[in-house]
Design a protein around this nucleic acid. Structure first.
Length: 364
DNA sequence: CGCAAATA
DNA sequence: TATTTGCGG
């Protein structure tokens, strides 16, 4: 769950009109996780409150993505979804065994459905071997059918999004996590959704929120540190790749890094105040490398926003998942309309198609 | 989340 | 017309 940078990073409200005709890289796993956390019947976060179809599989990603992409198009935004590839071994490991597990579990699930063993099907559908892999698989299928481009990053989705912004291929990245800025993403957008409300932890209650923009360059200037040093701050607080040092939060990490310039000096001077036992030179080097030189997909041919393939969408949503036909149809109609106006906008502002000069690389 | 129907 | 409620399978 991303690095806790919210207290030291300045975020500015951004209006929808500033996003018209812009291309935004979407951190797909992050946004899907958001849909998962929200689309529930009860405030308790148990799987029991998920909405399932008659094949006992969750459907939050299907409705969620259809609605969300519709929302992007309605605001004149062109989304490119980025998915995780094989994630670094320091992060949650998706091994080959697990991939094999999924294929096996998938077969097992299909058998349970065939035998109308509802209880078993449900158990498998919600198991961790099956559910997330299948959610991701179906999300890609749906995006493909909707004519939305997506990229499978060799490493993490966030680093791929950051790369696209850095290269000027897209205008913004959209992720709720702050990890993107450690990856050097110059321009990050948060809370990009229609309802602009968020569930308060564990309660059946909402708080109003607004769409926010983070300018990395301005923030570094404001914090008076370099991106390298911000990464060191992140390592101290804790990221997906290292749990962090107990007793050091965002404020303290910032003060310490400002004072000592880097983690090495900090450990040398403050070793009696904190437990740096876990933070070996090897770990420091590895985590820094992940953020500074992430593996990304560089060849990006055939990025297109196509007309939705209605037959394929209907087949996935209604035939496979038994979603309400009328509901899907009316949404598809809106979708096509939004797509058309969006496309006219884009053709009108053709210059966005050409990748701009690579943005200033703060690292060099 | 996002929609549609109900409510003030 | 603006805000709340309940539902999706």
């Amino acid at each position: 769950m991303g690095v806790k940078l919210q207290n030291i990073i300045v975020r500015k409200h951004i209006r929808y009109q500033d996003l018209v005709g812009k291309i935004i890289a979407i951190d797909a796993p992050n946004i899907i996780m958001g849909l998962f956390n929200f689309t529930r019947k009860n405030p308790d976060a148990s799987d029991a409150s998920l909405i399932l179809d008659r094949t006992q599989r969750p459907i939050f990603h299907l409705y969620g993505l259809l609605y969300r992409v519709n929302f992007y198009y309605s605001k004149g935004i062109f989304p490119i979804f980025c998915f995780d590839g094989k994630v670094s071994e320091l992060k949650r490991v998706v091994s080959k065994d697990q991939l094999k597990d999924f294929l096996f579990t998938q077969k097992w699930y299909e058998l349970a459905v065939k035998e109308s063993n509802k209880k078993l099907a449900r158990q498998i559908a919600l198991s961790k071997e099956y559910m997330w892999q299948n959610i991701i698989k179906e999300s890609k299928q749906l995006l493909g059918a909707l004519g939305i481009p997506y990229i499978e990053s060799p490493a993490s989705a966030e680093s791929q999004c950051a790369y696209l912004v850095k290269k000027g291929i897209v205008n913004f990245s959209n992720s709720q996590d702050f990890d993107s800025i450690l990856f050097g993403c110059p321009s990050l957008i948060q809370n990009l959704s229609k309802s602009l409300r968020r569930k308060v932890q564990g309660k059946w209650q909402y708080q109003k929120i607004q769409t926010l923009h983070i300018n990395l360059h301005k923030n570094l200037k404001n914090l008076q540190i370099s991106l390298f040093q911000l990464i060191d701050v992140g390592i101290l607080i804790g990221t997906d790749y290292f749990p962090g040092i107990t007793g050091i939060g965002p404020k303290k990490a910032l003060t310490l890094i400002r004072k000592y310039k880097n983690i090495e000096t900090l450990i040398l001077k403050e070793y009696q105040n904190f437990d740096f036992h876990e933070l070996t030179p090897y770990i420091i080097k590895r985590v820094r490398k992940i953020f500074v030189f992430p593996e990304v997909l560089e060849s990006l041919d055939n990025i297109h926003w196509n007309f939705p393939n209605k037959t394929r969408v209907m087949s996935l949503l209604c035939r496979e998942h038994h979603l309400d036909k009328n509901r899907v149809n009316s949404n598809l109609a809106k979708f096509e309309k939004n797509y058309k106006t969006c496309r006219e906008n884009f053709i009108f502002k053709k210059d966005y198609l050409k990748p701009k000069q690579a943005t200033l690389d703060y690292l060099l």
